[in-house]
């Protein structure tokens, strides 16, 4: 009974707004993650297609990575090109 009286006298701050805010932040992030693998897959395929029109590539050596930062996100594309490419390009032109 003393606890109930205390609670009546000293209302604790509501916790639901905290729950709501935490959920909104978390879900915004998780929804982003859900679509991310697809986006990266598409980017990878398209970059690979464009570059291999000009250069012979090993598809395994094309790495596309995305980093989500607070203010900006970065897209990192790392393509390994086999040696001897300069010669072939010179012949072609």
């Amino acid at each position: 009974m003393s606890m109930n009286l205390l609670n009546l006298l000293r209302r604790r701050p509501a916790s639901a707004p905290v729950a709501r805010e935490r959920l909104q932040i978390l879900l915004a992030h998780e929804r982003g993650l859900r679509s991310q693998p697809d986006l990266l897959g598409v980017l990878r395929e398209e970059i690979l297609a464009v570059v291999s029109r000009h250069v012979v590539l090993d598809p395994e050596k094309v790495i596309v990575r995305m980093d989500r930062g607070k203010a900006v996100s970065t897209l990192e594309v790392d393509i390994e090109i086999p040696n001897g490419i300069e010669k072939r390009m010179a012949v072609a032109s």
């Binding site: 916790s15 639901a16 707004p17 729950a19 709501r20 959920l23």
Partner: peptide, 16 residues
């Protein structure tokens, strides 16, 4: 409990 702010209310859930 929702009215006292102890539980997510209907609008919170629908908005999310």
């Amino acid at each position: 409990r929702a009215a006292r702010g102890e539980m997510l209310n209907i609008d919170d859930i629908l908005e999310i």
